[in-house]
């Protein structure tokens, strides 16, 4: 009881602080500081129509590299923690038959889902979306394959190869930016092109393709590891 009272007291204090923030917030009328700099110069310097992509990939590209690394570490730790010991055998529950509707529909829909994912990350510099969203869409395609066929085993080698190649390519483009342009992950190593077309914004589409492949592989790896051996015996 006393614990509940303590929690309520803490939350009341926090709510009071939030109330202070709320009454001091009176809606922005103009852009300030960094936001106005990016709005004025982002399109000219980077050449991307979508300013969020310009910030994520170029201005704050190093943060994105760190983010991808965190995701990779999470996937690696999940694989490490869930690894079964050699002689440990989980009793298998019988696999329930998936419905015919799901299996036939997945054969039609999965390629389309992959295509939508690729579209989202190739057009990341023009439309809403980008590498992370496209990667998540690709991972949901893998998820649909897993739901249609629960005993399917995602090949660890293929996923690891895609992931490491795209990671190395991402860092290599960053280093090429130091050599050919202004700094690490500078996108002006390729010509900026005409504003608003598919082949524009320098290296941003290229970087987003590698980020999309890497994130898709990592999320598929997480889903595959968590779903693995829930129904069948490890061999």
């Amino acid at each position: 009881m006393i614990k509940k009272l303590l929690i309520v007291g803490l939350l009341t204090g926090l709510a009071f602080m939030f109330y202070g923030l709320l009454i001091s917030y009176n809606g922005n009328e103009t852009l300030t500081g960094l936001g106005s700099y990016y709005a004025q110069n982002g399109a000219r310097e980077v050449g991307a129509a979508n300013l969020v992509s310009a910030i994520v990939v170029t201005y704050r590209g190093l943060d994105t590299l760190g983010e991808v690394t965190i995701l990779f570490l999470a996937a690696a730790i999940i694989g490490f923690v869930l690894k079964l010991k050699k002689d440990e055998v989980v009793e298998a529950r019988p696999v329930r038959e998936t419905s015919e509707l799901l299996t036939s529909a997945s054969q039609v829909i999965v390629p389309v889902i992959f295509l939508v994912g690729v579209y989202i990350f190739i057009n990341g510099h023009l439309t809403p979306g980008g590498g992370f969203q496209g990667g998540a869409v690709i991972a949901s395609g893998v998820l649909l394959m897993l739901l249609a066929n629960p005993t399917m085993h995602i090949s660890h080698n293929i996923v690891a190869t895609i992931e490491s190649i795209s990671g190395i390519a991402f860092v290599a483009i960053g280093i090429l930016g130091i050599v050919l342009a202004g700094g690490f992950l500078d996108n002006r190593l390729l010509p900026l092109g005409e504003f608003g077309t598919l082949l524009s914004a320098g290296a941003i589409p290229l970087i987003y393709i590698f980020i999309g492949l890497k994130v898709g592989a990592e999320l598929s790896n997480i889903i595959g590891t968590i779903s693995y051996n829930q129904n069948e015996k490890p061999n």
Binding site: L31, A39, N50
Partner: peptide, 26 residues
């Protein structure tokens, strides 16, 4: 924060702040 043409003045008066959005994406 998605622009049609390169024009600093118009961009300054037409879009919301893109920085918190990039942060939340991460």
């Amino acid at each position: 924060p998605i622009l049609d043409v390169i024009s600093p003045e118009e961009a300054l008066t037409s879009i919301v702040d893109p920085v918190p959005q990039a942060l939340v994406l991460t």
